[in-house]
């Protein structure tokens, strides 16, 4: 039956995307998350009422295949406010084969440092999915973070994130489209934070970046509101 392996895979993936039933092979915590996220919010949902979670992940590098998550920070937002008390933060130990100095100077997480209470990857994912729930995910160049999280989920035998995702970099481009001359780093978090007057003191801790992204999100949303000239709905993004 070896030749039909691809067909089984295809079927199961098609089935999965349509099914509202969780796969019993998934870890129990992912099944819970799956049940909690039956459908994505519709385009008509007013942005003011949309529960948001802002996520930032620190990784050992930028290669989604090779590199690993080091920490994740997340904050919840609703309307025009961020609740500081309502946050998620988790650290993973640096994998032994990733302990080179490459990323250390960026995120400042020293492999095996005792400064953090480390979690197992599974604990981290379980906590994260519970924190995210059915909220819409906002992040900066969030595609990368989502991909890193999805790969971690896959390693744990779970399905991918099912939430709607908004990229603040895309939003910034819409508000201030780049000319053909503008360099790509124009939309980096650092550049944008500077442009929107957000102090950068805690850059490169996951929660610190999530906070900066959160403030950026509030500000960009305000600019978009001005541009669109009426109350924003999810479809505007």
């Amino acid at each position: 039956m070896e030749g039909f392996e691809w067909l089984r895979k295809l079927r199961s993936s098609m089935g999965k995307s349509k099914a509202s039933e969780p796969d019993s092979t998934w870890p129990e915590w992912y099944q819970r998350y799956f049940r909690a996220t039956p459908n994505k919010p519709a385009d008509e949902v007013p942005l003011e009422e949309l529960p948001i979670v802002i996520i930032d992940a620190e990784t050992t590098g930028l290669d989604v295949k090779k590199d690993r998550l080091l920490s994740i920070g997340a904050l919840r937002a609703l309307g025009n406010s961020l609740q500081i008390a309502d946050h998620f933060e988790g650290y993973l130990p640096t994998p032994p084969d990733q302990q080179d100095a490459r990323a250390v100077h960026i995120h400042g997480i020293i492999p095996g440092s005792r400064r953090y209470d480390y979690l197992e990857e599974e604990e981290l994912m379980e906590g994260l999915l519970e924190f995210i729930g059915e909220r819409t995910i906002v992040g900066h160049h969030i595609g990368f973070d989502v991909e890193m999280i999805n790969r971690a989920l896959e390693r744990l035998g779970a399905g991918p994130l099912r939430n709607r995702v908004i990229d603040t970099a895309d939003l910034a481009k819409r508000i201030q489209p780049s000319g053909y001359w503008s360099p790509p780093e124009k939309y980096s978090l650092d550049t944008l934070a500077r442009r929107y007057r957000i102090p950068l003191s805690d850059r490169h801790t996951a929660l610190g970046d999530a906070y900066i992204t959160g403030v950026l999100w509030l500000k960009l949303k305000g600019r978009l509101l001005e541009k669109v000239g009426r109350d924003l709905v999810l479809g505007d993004l």
Partner: peptide
């Protein structure tokens, strides 16, 4: 106190 702050964004004129 700091940990319980809510950060609010107010566009001009709110």
């Amino acid at each position: 106190v700091a940990g319980r702050v809510e950060v609010q964004y107010q566009p001009i004129g709110s």
